[in-house]
Design a protein around this nucleic acid. Structure first.
Lengths: 241, 241
DNA sequence: ATTTAATGTGTTGCAAGTACATATTTATTA
DNA sequence: TAATAAATATGTACTTGCAACACATTAAAT
């Protein structure tokens, strides 16, 4: 490889050579959901012989004319029917042997979905929600990708109002606390949790109460409209961030 | 595109088709250095006509049999002669039109280098250190990549002992504080800074004093040997993290 | 010897975080 | 209908981390 001339030039000349198109690019989505007081992730049974019986993340190759994020949104739309979801890039994974069929580097995204959303339609019965804590082994390096995305999610929830994408529009503080607990894997003190949340000024009292709970109903809240629950959706042609 | 069958299978079948090898993959390194009390970044004049006069990051296409990190280490070695540097993946950038010659998605890394290191040899006189604060416009989307990497660095330095890769082995607390100030772009209180650093238990008194300073010399410190200044270097075949 | 300029150390106040207790409300049940 | 159970709603004391701030000390330069 060129050592003393500009590598960029050398590189670009080679773009027209086939040898440099031997890497495929995919995106993989870690789709988190929250149901029955458990953090879950949407997985599909791997259809590769090498990984028979194992689950894998939802992903696909990126099309040559497709932005990375567009590819992720496409997968989400195809798999869940949902359109307007929280999505965030986490990292690229590029080990040489991570895919048995060839060199595929993948860009991992995590996404947050309200499982109870009325528009949610899983496209395939090989698709299932799995409690994150029960997952042991996955196809490819997907367990590593899942763990990395979960760590990122854990870091984010204390600073950014993102978990609300996992909940229905209206929720009680208990629901919210249970969600935090299931993501962080720890128990939280109810009084301190409420104090912390109220300091952040994320919530708005909707003036309604829980219904059909076998105990004293709590107030319902929603995310303040001034808080961006979803990131600004970039145009496909825009520079990624 | 396959909507109701496993996408993975569909994808893998297509790996053998040429249409899916139309994306090239590169890595770009944001190489930070510290000199004359300024945070600097190593850039090269772009040799593309489209970007004539503009600087660009150091990068290259990833070879089909090369791990992403290996490619970054290769670039660093070729460009600086250095071998054992701090390197960390930040993000993938994948806009469709980010490269004028074709579809190239790039994985951005940032790396920290001691500019005074005796082994440092820039391979090319188009390569220059630029004060980060002076940089306005760059080739490709490299300004965005630089800004993103700087933000990541800023987040990291308060929690992880990484800045020591930018300093010679022995340094004074003043030097260290000036470095923090130039990375964060703020002035820090000397007493609070020292307290914070000493709480972290990163430093070890080497029992020597500054020399050739026109004022009272300060004690010299080095990073505690128990502190990992560099990340564990993964084997090329290992799963990336 | 004096001046200058930086080093090297607390202290005090404020803000945030943690541990912890009691009164209140609703549904359930006896 | 009254008593009980279970969760909501709220407040206080303690501790820890962070920010503002001042003074004595040391070495080089004059």
């Amino acid at each position: 490889m060129a050592q003393h001339t500009g590598l960029k030039t050398a590189a670009i000349e080679k773009i027209s050579h086939l040898e440099y198109f031997n890497i495929a690019v995919s995106v993989d989505c870690v789709i988190f959901g929250y149901d029955e007081k458990e953090l879950k992730v949407l997985l599909i049974k791997s259809d590769l012989e090498e990984f028979s019986g194992l689950d894998s993340l939802l992903g696909d190759l990126v099309r040559p004319d497709e932005h990375l994020e567009t590819a992720s949104y496409r997968i989400l739309k195809e798999r869940t029917g949902l359109d307007d979801v929280y999505l965030e890039q986490v990292q690229a994974f590029g080990s040489i042997n991570r895919h048995p069929s060839g060199r595929v580097i993948t860009i991992a995204y995590y996404s947050l979905i309200d499982i109870s959303h009325h528009k949610l339609r899983l496209d395939n019965n090989e698709l299932n929600w799995h409690p994150v804590n029960d997952i042991r082994k996955m196809a490819f390096d997907h367990k590593l990708i899942l763990d990395t995305c979960l760590k990122r999610l854990q870091q984010q929830i204390m600073n950014q109002p993102v978990v609300f994408n996992l909940l229905p529009e209206k929720f009680s503080l208990r629901q919210l606390q249970e969600l935090y607990e299931s993501i962080l894997g720890v128990e939280l003190d109810r009084r301190n949790f409420r104090k912390k949340i109220s300091l952040k000024d994320w919530l708005q009292d909707v003036g309604e109460m829980e219904e059909d709970v076998p105990h004293r109903p709590g107030k319902l809240y929603k995310l303040k409209t001034s808080q961006p629950k979803k990131p600004v959706r970039k145009k496909a042609g825009a520079v990624s961030a």
